[in-house]
Design a protein around this nucleic acid. Structure first.
Lengths: 186, 186
DNA sequence: GACTTTATTTACAGATCAGTACATTTGATC
DNA sequence: GATCAAATGTACTGATCTGTAAATAAAGTC
């Protein structure tokens, strides 16, 4: 099944939202950017919020697939894959279009804890945590869940800092810290 | 000198922007919230962007003063003050109105690297880094600047995660990681 | 108290916001 | 090819956006 019209719209909306922000991007801009008419857009997505939620679902899928795959390509053992996460991050930071984490930005614009967009952003992070936690467990490290949380703090910090200071340096700082924490848990 | 009208406006605008976000807060809402008229508002601040920049300046002053003071109150030595930073963070996370870092959110809404709001947000982080770097140096730790950057990655990660998952747990995870990194640099 | 300057209010401009009613086109079915 | 249903385009709504022009009030100054 080739990508449906809807999927195509989500994909293009993802780019615009990521580059431009959520509130700053109007439906008119999306309509202009995608070439589709407004009625069609609202036929595919009941509201702007629905569109954003669809965008976040796609982003979650894309990002986690990419990150997990890249970690596996770069290292063989679970332990080394944890470390490779930070090299993958560096690759991401180097991309010209890098603009930080879409979920952090989504939760920054939709702050209310019970807002669907906020909840879905939190869910993305939770799934990352589960995955990293399992890698830490497979690697036979002590307190794998605590370690996973700490590695993810380094990851989030690195993403935010790389975006704010527009440099990829935080990836290597975080990697060095991660190695230290992993060795201590060995 | 008692707070001028302008300072009062900045203070109230800070609360509204922090609670509500930047794009989501219109000048009309601020005018209603502060009781002042629209023309007065625009007499004090040429544009919404100017108001936001003034808000961020106040936030920078408030936050760094509060954090540095709290670190000193909680610990005597530079080394322990570095660790106490994470206890101070936990205090912050526990506050009912906690909504994450205003500068991360500002840079999330004004992403362009050469936007004044983005630049000013980055400057806040840079000043924190200098301060923490000096503490690490005073504590006689190895590679004080690298360590400072790593501790701040933990801090940013903890803030983002605490906001996203609305729990204060990241503060203690970050603290434990920080202690490990500090001991390794001892 | 008259005069000047400054701050404030009211009322509005033009653009854009999310969302929709209705006409038109398109594509499938007979 | 006629008929019908789904997708699309046009044109609009009322609300809200940032920002402003002109009228009014307040506060000094002589």
């Amino acid at each position: 099944m080739r990508p449906s019209k809807r999927d195509e719209l989500v994909q293009k909306a993802l780019k615009v939202f990521y580059r431009n922000g959520f509130h700053a991007t109007g439906m008119d801009m999306l309509v202009a950017e995608t070439g589709v008419s407004k009625t069609s857009m609202y036929n595919h997505f009941r509201t702007k919020e629905d569109l954003i939620l669809a965008v976040l679902r796609l982003r979650d899928e894309n990002f986690r697939n990419w990150l997990y795959r890249r970690m596996e390509e770069r290292a063989d053992t679970p332990r080394d894959q944890l470390i490779a996460m930070f090299d993958a991050l560096e690759e991401w930071f180097e991309e010209p279009g890098f603009r930080g984490c879409m979920f952090i930005k989504a939760s920054a614009e939709y702050q209310n804890a019970d807002h669907a967009i906020h909840i879905q952003s939190a869910e993305h992070k939770r799934m990352l945590q589960v995955h990293v936690g399992e890698l830490a467990r497979k690697a036979g490290l002590e307190n794998p869940d605590v370690l996973a949380r700490q590695l993810l703090l380094l990851k989030e910090g690195a993403i935010v800092t790389a975006h704010l200071q527009h440099t990829q340096a935080p990836a290597q700082d975080a990697k060095a810290a991660a190695i230290a924490l992993i060795e201590l848990a060995d």
